[in-house]
Amino acid sequence: MKTRGPIIVAFVIGMLMMIQFFTPNPFFLRLYNIVLDWKQVVLGCTFILGTWSLIRYHIKKIQRHQENWQYSYVTLIGLTVTVGAAGIWKTASGPYPWLFNNIQVPMQSTMFSLLAFFVASASYRAFRARTVHATLLLVAGALVMLGRVSIGAYFSGSILGVEISLVEISDWLLNVPNLAAKRGIMIGVGLGMTATAIKIILGIEKTYLGRSD
């Protein structure tokens, strides 16, 4: 029953949601909205679970004096101060928006800005022309990048008597070979999603329950 119960629930809810997609019957629409509401309720409850998991993780780290355990104090103090500020002064004014705007936002921006350096190092690795494929990627990448910037509009030439600009080559690379590959991947993803959903609804796939028997 431990495995059969969730499979029955997955089958019934899965079939109802599938029917809801194909019929305009308001009963199924109401049911769908109820499921969405319950999802929000469950998410709210699991945030308590998540916060408890975070607190326990850091308390154990402090207790065991694991590497860099001092930073766990920062996490726990930060969590207490932020939640406390929101609880006492609410979220619209007071220390909470100050904490958010002056600590959270700059830290997130810092992480995001690091992407520029990571893009540079990843591009360097990807564009090393060691094989034919990598060389093709390098040439295509260079053409697309040049075609995307203002100076690209000034490059044009004649190929077999046809006047063609770098912008057109760049657009062609993006809209034909690149888009074809992208669509191929998306078709595969769509089929994979559908197959996984069907396997779960029909009870063929049970790994998500923690067991496959």
Partner: peptide, 13 residues
């Protein structure tokens, strides 16, 4: 339990 844990909902966090 502490090996499978929650971190934060913030993307870059």
């Amino acid at each position: 339990d502490e090996d499978v844990y929650y971190v934060t909902f913030s993307q870059f966090g």
